[in-house]
Simulated assay, not measured.
Amino acid sequence: MNTRRALNSYAKVSCEANIGVASPHELIQMLYDGALQRIVQAKGAIQHNQVGVKGKKINETIAIINGLRENLDLDNGGDLANNMEMLYIYILSVLNKAHQKNDIALLDEAAQLIGNMASAWREISPSKVTESSL
């Protein structure tokens, strides 16, 4: 068996198992982490001139950010939810530009913004996060 395929299979099963038992707070953290991992992979793809991989990884990151954005509670989240939506929209535009221009610096900018959000998310008490607040 191909070692790379075995590792990918293990990672997929491990991730699916974690999703099944994760709290809402942990799920959001997993999404941030997944977005950051895909940005790193996209940067590597640019460096190795792997256009297809770059596109796939940036598109996966965009899908994650869109998922986070679509699940904001704009009706009850007040200014915080609105500000997060604006930040997500900005990150999406940065990712699109990075994709068009093969620009690692733009990927770094998106990663920094997502990393800051992930750090702030880690500081939130998991007991304050419920499925209805996502």
Rank of each mutant, 00 (worst) to 15 (best):
M1A: 12
M1Q: 11
N2T: 07
N2H: 13
T3M: 15
R5P: 01
Y10I: 10
Y10D: 07
K12L: 15
K12N: 10
C15P: 00
E16D: 14
N18R: 12
I19E: 15
I19H: 14
G20P: 01
G20N: 13
G20T: 13
V21K: 15
A22C: 13
P24T: 07
H25V: 11
E26Q: 11
E26V: 06
L27I: 12
G34H: 02
L36F: 07
Q37A: 14
Q37P: 00
R38Q: 14
I39Q: 00
V40D: 14
V40G: 11
A42R: 05
A42Q: 03
A42E: 05
A42M: 07
A42I: 04
K43P: 03
G44Y: 06
A45T: 09
I46Q: 01
Q47R: 15
H48A: 13
H48S: 15
N49I: 10
Q50N: 14
G52K: 12
V53G: 00
K54H: 12
K54D: 10
G55N: 11
E60A: 09
T61E: 03
I62L: 15
I62K: 08
I62Q: 12
I64M: 09
I65A: 03
L68A: 05
L68Q: 04
L72V: 12
L74F: 07
D75K: 11
D75R: 10
G77H: 02
G77E: 04
G77I: 04
G77Y: 02
G78D: 07
N82D: 15
N82C: 06
N82S: 13
N82Q: 10
M84H: 06
M84K: 05
M84G: 01
E85V: 00
E85S: 11
M86I: 06
L87W: 04
L87Q: 05
Y88D: 04
I89V: 12
Y90N: 15
I91C: 06
I91Q: 02
N96P: 00
N96C: 06
N96K: 14
K97Y: 02
K97H: 11
A98P: 02
A98Y: 03
H99G: 00
Q100W: 03
Q100F: 04
K101N: 12
K101A: 13
N102L: 10
D103T: 03
D103K: 07
I104W: 02
A105S: 11
L107P: 03
L107Y: 07
D108P: 00
D108W: 08
E109Q: 14
A110R: 03
A111Y: 09
Q112R: 15
L113E: 04
L113D: 03
G115T: 08
G115Q: 01
G115C: 05
N116E: 15
M117V: 07
A118M: 13
A118Y: 10
S119C: 08
W121K: 05
W121F: 09
R122V: 14
R122H: 15
R122Y: 13
S125T: 07
P126E: 05
P126C: 12
P126T: 08
S127E: 15
K128G: 03
V129A: 08
V129T: 13
T130S: 10
T130N: 09
T130Y: 08
E131S: 11
S132A: 14
L134G: 08
